[in-house]
Design a protein around this nucleic acid. Structure first.
Lengths: 221, 221
DNA sequence: ACCTGAACACCGTTCAAGT
DNA sequence: ACCTGAACACCGTTCAAGT
């Protein structure tokens, strides 16, 4: 008679940090970071919402754990070689990781990094720069510039791709371009196609990365 | 006798788009974008939450309006001059705007831009590049690279600055650096000071911007 | 046209309590 | 130690209704 939709009490040790993190990640990938909630995660795991607080003190701490999980899973450091190659390998790898996991991108874009999560990649990159002859200061600056460039490029690409996913978004983008007056913005109108193509893609990323690397080379003299 | 805390009915035309947008902006600046809510905005304006839906179809549309308001308020385009100067002026101006308005930064980092909001700045920049001799394709790519670089750099800087605001955040950052094993990450440990200084600041931004500009110059031959 | 309250279907998190 | 339900103080938005 008691067909009240009440869950059976979950047995002890149903949960553990890994299970929570991987399930959270799966939910985030499936429905987007904004749709993710502690309560939906608890439901997916078959426990009450408060069960999770034994393992994580807050939702933010859970985000950090998901981020560290993703950053730790992939080796971003590269084989030895000229510094330009090391830069290219690490930057490309990071971009790939971020595009494969939009939720990681959004977490990085909303919370600070403490540093140890990416220490291996930083070590490879910064060592390559130092061995190539960059000063301590320039090596550190180049490293951070690289990172912020990849972050911004991937963030923009991911956002614009999402907008282009549905036909309504594509319509909005096209409508905006067509609404621009050729009298006020002649060059923008002339470059409409080219500008729209630069909102993402490997070619755009490589263009930026190459310019950045080329711009660092003079610092070696 | 009816001292129930009930608001007087707001007179007609208490609201208008500008008032809503500027009040929303003030709230976002005061308490942060994440703390901002439609309900808190309504309370601040002395109306019921639903009154706002006469002017904006959703919270997202309100975000877009705040973004457009901020982008429209500042002239980002520059006086004529060599393309390197134009690039520098526009990039620096955009960074400044983003750092002054962290909520604008967060909106840009979470929603796509349609384009007309920044058309004036884009026009100036892209025209300068075309007149300097860049191809259509390269001018467009350079423009977007610049934009994504500024976005990433400002986003990171703003986030790390926030973390450094409270002593707890500073402690976390320091603790992480000190926890890194010098055996595993010798170069990172050696560059700890330099790396920590690159998390923001004018010098770091100029370093990146200069490298970027220098990296574009070879494309003119 | 412009503003209203009530209601719906959610949130994250605190607290005291069960096992 | 690990999981629970109830409760608190919120959300954004729909709906039908007032003026």
């Amino acid at each position: 008679m008691s067909d009240k939709p009440t869950r059976a009490r979950a047995p002890r040790n149903t949960l553990n940090p890994e299970l929570i993190v991987t399930t959270a990640l799966a939910l985030m990938e499936a429905q987007g970071l904004e749709a993710f909630s502690v309560r939906s995660l608890a439901k997916e795991l078959g426990v009450g919402p408060m069960a999770l607080y034994t393992y994580f003190r807050s939702k933010d701490e859970l985000f950090d754990a998901v981020r560290d999980h993703l950053l730790g899973a992939r080796r971003l450091s590269a084989a030895r070689g000229p510094w330009q190659e090391q830069v290219r390998t690490i930057a490309t790898g990071l971009r790939q990781l971020l595009l494969e996991h939009p939720c990681l991108l959004r977490i990085l874009a909303s919370r600070p990094l403490k540093g140890q999560e990416t220490a291996a990649a930083t070590e490879t990159l910064v060592r390559a720069l130092r061995e190539a002859g960059f000063s301590k200061e320039n090596a550190a600056r180049a490293h951070t510039m690289l990172f912020t460039f990849v972050l911004g490029a991937a963030l923009w690409e991911s956002q614009m791709n999402a907008e282009k996913q549905d036909r309504e978004g594509r319509r909005r983008l096209r409508a905006t371009m067509e609404s621009l007056s050729a009298a006020d913005y002649p060059t923008v109108v002339d470059l409409a196609d080219e500008l729209s193509r630069t909102s993402g893609g490997d070619a755009q990323f490589d263009f930026g990365l190459n310019a950045l690397i080329a711009g660092l080379e003079p610092l070696l003299n």
